[in-house]
């Protein structure tokens, strides 16, 4: 199918882009187009105008050190994340997630910002970023504001970004030494959307005691969520197989998964436990 008629703008600056979003009824940001164009071709979305932010002079593709956090530009592609040395070293959870998105063509064009703004609860990067307690920098007419992760994802396909705001950067707080992270997903084929996606970050204290732990789940609620009960269970305990398995048993308590042809609600509830355990073990194995 072909999309409905739409206007296309390729503004030269972010400022102009924000203006275009403001004045054009029903305008949408176009980043990598890997979700938006597909929806438009199926006519599930029919924006009147697209504002392409990939051609502005403001470079939004970068990975750099900030104050206490790593800064990732919103237009950084999945492929760049997957291959970035600094990401691989500090946040393997993100390269895990990026490397399992769709296929290479999609990873070449799809962006971290687009994935977050699209807010598909089954998407991989939002789940991974949820375990990292990331923050989201958006720019609008009134300037810049920072949205904490807990406020960013509102509902399926809905974020707290206003219509005339643009996500410019994602800030990922550094984890303390002896932290490890991992993301794994259960999918039918390599690169399919998650039936269940689990992100885990653990920080190991003295005597292998769990100083901190965060477990995030994708595809099991209207937004990515944290498995708080599992986290509570593990925190302060020795990070051994038994405790991890026990915590994982609690990982589905906050979940409210949907059913579809690849996984029923019950199957997803069961798989959360399996993948939470595997993700925690993998994260722990990476804690250095």
């Amino acid at each position: 199918m072909t999309p409905k008629k739409f206007a296309y703008f390729a503004p030269a600056s972010l400022k102009e882009a924000i203006q275009l979003l403001r004045v054009n009824e029903d305008a949408k940001v176009l980043a990598g187009g890997q979700s938006l164009i597909a929806l438009m071709k199926l006519r599930l979305a029919a924006p009147a105008a697209l504002v392409d932010i990939t051609k502005t002079g403001d470079l939004l593709s970068y990975i750099r050190e900030g104050k206490g956090h790593l800064e990732v530009g919103a237009l950084t592609t999945h492929d760049t994340l997957e291959r970035s040395k600094i990401i691989n070293k500090k946040f393997p959870i993100l390269s895990d997630a990026a490397s399992k998105i769709g296929d290479q063509q999609i990873r070449n064009r799809g962006t971290i910002g687009g994935s977050c703004c699209h807010a598909d609860p089954a998407a991989d990067l939002p789940t991974a970023l949820t375990a990292l307690e990331s923050e989201f920098v958006v720019r609008g007419v009134k300037g810049k504001r920072v949205i904490p992760q807990s406020k960013f994802f509102v509902d399926t396909f809905t974020t707290s970004i206003a219509k005339d705001e643009i996500l410019t950067e994602i800030q990922i707080p550094h984890t303390p030494p002896k932290s490890g992270s991992a993301y794994i997903k259960h999918s039918r084929r390599e690169g399919d959307f998650a039936i269940v996606g689990v992100g885990a970050v653990v920080t190991v204290g003295p005597k292998k005691v769990c100083r901190d732990v965060r477990v995030s789940l994708g595809a099991v609620a209207s937004t990515p969520i944290r498995a708080k009960s599992a986290e509570r269970h593990l925190k302060g305990k020795t990070l051994d197989e038994g405790n991890i398995a026990e915590a994982a048993e609690r990982a589905n308590e906050e979940a409210d998964p949907p059913s579809d042809m690849h996984g029923s609600r019950q199957y997803r509830l069961d798989m959360i436990k399996v993948f939470a355990r595997r993700a925690l073990n993998l994260a722990l194995s990476r804690a250095r």
């Binding site: 296929d103 399919d192 042809m261």
Partner: peptide, 16 residues
């Protein structure tokens, strides 16, 4: 039909 696009009608790729 639940599998009416290639997102749900899963055709094996070179990886599968």
């Amino acid at each position: 039909l639940k599998s009416s696009t290639l997102v749900d009608y899963l055709v094996p790729t070179a990886l599968e």
